[in-house]
Amino acid sequence: MPSDPQAADSGSPAPTPTPADSSPQRGTLWPLLASELSVLFRRRRTAAMLATLAAVPVLIAVAVRLTRSTTPGRGPAFLDRITENGLFVVLTALVLCTPLFLPLTVGVTSGDTVAGEAGQGTLRYLLVAPAGRFRLLLVKYVGAAVFAVAATASVIVAGTVAGLLLFPVGQVPLLSGDVVSPWVAEGRILLVGAYVCVSLLGLSAIGLFISTLTDVPVGAMAATVALAIAAQVLDALPQLAWLHPWLFSHYWLGFADLLRQPIEWGSFGSNALLQLGYLAVFGAFAYGRFATKDVLS
């Protein structure tokens, strides 16, 4: 964030208006961001999405607990390990949520960022306040990214609790065959969570850009989710192998590398680089569009 040496203490009313300065001022971003997060997380829709995500590991755990019979090699990865160790509930849930549920909720939130305000008419009042177009877009993106973190955390927390309550927890065998303590394993799970959060940064940026294109939030949400699905479909076609490393969803399920001893950081790095690339490109598109957009809603 560019800093401004003149950034006046916003706590005292300036006798003369602050000189024109289009750059956001340090220290004045936080009130808007706090307000954005508060509005985001006080929405019933956000709570419902987080609850749905939390329900996934709980359903998995309960289903496995009730049937007690899992056929090794069938169902999502890690599913057959759950009865031995409750911590695998989280990993199974993340494998299930990463391709669909998480992109769905992230698509809804990021697609709503600008289009939602525009559709509601509050965008014009934010801009007249004046929130500043760059500041507003930045705050909107950070809000969407925080939601992605909350969504992932929701799966991890619910999965960990369900796993601990319903299944024994002991030494955890890693994919490389090494066995680690539950604490180390939980640390690895948090790393996987960080990986998933990073994976969603690119999609959030795409959603933000699409959101600047329309005043109809549902359209932006649907388009973002559709893109997430399309990217995964393309990623599954071997004929398009040349395209695969450029798809934002390409490394989404690569977090298994974090479950080896020693940790293989290769996919984490490639994923982070790719996501930052998407963030830079679509962030720039979003600003390019929004900075000159006529707000007529």
């Binding site: 916003s10 706590g11 005292s12 009313p13 300036a14 208006p17 602050t18 956001p24 001022q25 004045t28 971003l29 009130p31 808007l32 706090a34 307000s35 509050t122 009042y125 934010l126 306040a129 004046p130 929130a131 500043g132 500041r135 507003l136």
Partner: peptide
């Protein structure tokens, strides 16, 4: 809306 104005005390 007031927090959106960086100049608002």
């Amino acid at each position: 809306l007031d927090s959106a104005d960086p100049h608002a005390p």
